[in-house]
Structure formats: C-alpha cells, structure tokens
C-alpha cells in the first residue's frame, strides 16, 4: 500500500512512504480497471482532492487499488482499433462512437490527461490486474497504476501480455524477471478474484469506486472537491 502526506503530495507522487508522522492514515480503497477512461480521469480528480485536503491536514492518505474487470471476455489481442471494437461489440454507429470518444478525450484533457483512442490497443486486463497486485506486494502499486493507465490511454501500448507488462513494470523499479514469473504462473490471480468478489459483495457495479476509511463509498469520477470533502469529514470525525 502506498501513502502520501501533506508535505509530499504533488502532481508526481513519491515512490515510497514519506512523512507519515504519528497520525493514522486515512485508507482509501479504489476499485478500477485499466481499460476504464473514467478510472484514469477519476484518479486525477481524486489526486487533486487529496492534494487539496493535504494542504490543510497532516493526516496521510493511504491508497490501495483493487481489481475490477469490466470486460473479462475481451481477447488479449484484438486486431483493430478501439472504434472497431466498439462498433463490433456494441453495435453502435461509428460516427456516434467517434463523437463520444471525442467527448471523453476532451474531458480527459480538462484534467490534464492526453487520451489517444486512435492508438489504443484494446486488450484483456486480467494480467494487468495481477501485475498491480505484484506491484502492491513490492510497494509500487500506485506507480504501476499510473504507468499502466498512461500506457493504455496515452501511449497506445499493449498492457495485456506478459512481456509488455514486465517491461512497463521495470519502469517503476519492479524486477521484470520476477514479475514475468508471477504472471506466467498466475500467482496473483486469486487476489484479483478476491477483489472482484469483494466488489460484488459490496454491490459495486461500476468503477472507479472509492471506499474511504471503510466508512464512505464514492462512486465514479467525482469532482476533486467531493474527495476533499469526504477526506476532511473523515478526519474531522476522527477528532470528534
């Protein structure tokens, strides 16, 4: 699990736990999927909310990502563009899809993200989720989540096979050979399934979904202020 605090938070997160102080961190559990545009956008909004909260509080925030597969039947290698995939699998007119993807791209840009749906490599994300669990075990989950989202939505990289995930993992300091071995043996598949089962048990039907300190659930890519408010509320309730 990764944590950050008021004095360390910025657009680029630290690689490790910093300046924790004596205050028990506020735990935020986030269910998301790499292939989810609102999860990446929501991640940015959440981070902005945490930054705003951290500006006035010394209470650190601890984040843990959990797996949620939006389309587990998606093939690892889809020979075509995102537009092709959506036309074929959703049965929607190409013009309508193009327009909607443009809208999402515009909203992403408002949060400082660059989405390139024309380059996107549609794929199955179960291995990416396993890689995130591997990264969690090595204290690099938040860093890898950022790298995977960016690889998928911005850089048009493949995030569905072992070789590419190992390469991406190495960029955040993970051992590529060890990650490869973990993915080849599905070492973390049970953890992925456990996350999904917990989401189902909680009644989570869409992502991103945030559980704040086990007390409050926040669904969707809320505005940064919403996250700031709930963190402030949790902090205040602790002091009450």
């Amino acid at each position: 699990m990764d944590q950050w605090s008021a004095n360390s938070f910025g657009n680029e997160f630290p690689d490790s736990v910093v300046a924790l102080g004596m205050t028990e961190p506020i735990k935020v559990d986030i269910w998301s999927d790499i292939a989810c545009p609102w999860c990446f956008i929501g991640k940015r909004k959440f981070e902005a909310g945490v930054a705003a909260f951290a500006a006035g509080s010394d209470t650190p925030v601890e984040v843990e990502y959990h797996s949620f597969e939006l389309a587990p039947d998606t093939p690892v290698d889809f020979d075509g563009s995102e537009l092709d995939f959506l036309v074929n699998h959703k049965g929607m007119p190409a013009e309508q899809i193009t327009e909607m993807l443009g809208r999402v791209t515009g909203i992403a840009a408002q949060t400082g993200l660059e989405f390139n749906f024309d380059k996107l490599r549609h794929t199955n994300t179960v291995l990416a989720h396993q890689a995130l669990h591997f990264a969690k075990a090595h204290g690099k989950q938040r860093e890898l989540a950022e790298v995977l989202f960016r690889a998928y939505f911005t850089d048009g990289k493949h995030v569905g096979n072992i070789a590419d995930l190992a390469e991406l993992g190495a960029t955040v300091g993970l051992d590529a050979a060890e990650l490869t071995a973990a993915l080849e043996t599905d070492r973390y598949l049970a953890d992925v399934r456990a996350d999904q089962a917990q989401a189902q048990g909680y009644g989570i039907q869409g992502v991103p979904f945030f559980v704040i300190d086990g007390k409050y659930g926040v669904s969707g890519a809320q505005e940064a202020q919403a996250f700031e408010q709930v963190l402030t509320q949790v902090s205040a309730e602790r002091g009450a």
């Binding site: 609102w38 939006l70 009644g203 979904f209 659930g217 969707g220």
Partner: peptide, 17 residues
C-alpha cells in the same frame, strides 16, 4: 455481504460498468 459504508457524493458521476 452488504456494503459497510455510506454512499456519498454525486450519484451521477461518470463511471464504467
């Protein structure tokens, strides 16, 4: 199992299912 938390925030915030 039921959700042990209270849902807050804008219920119409964009999400994927």
């Amino acid at each position: 199992m039921s959700a042990p938390f209270t849902l807050i925030g804008d219920p119409a915030a964009e999400a994927c299912g």
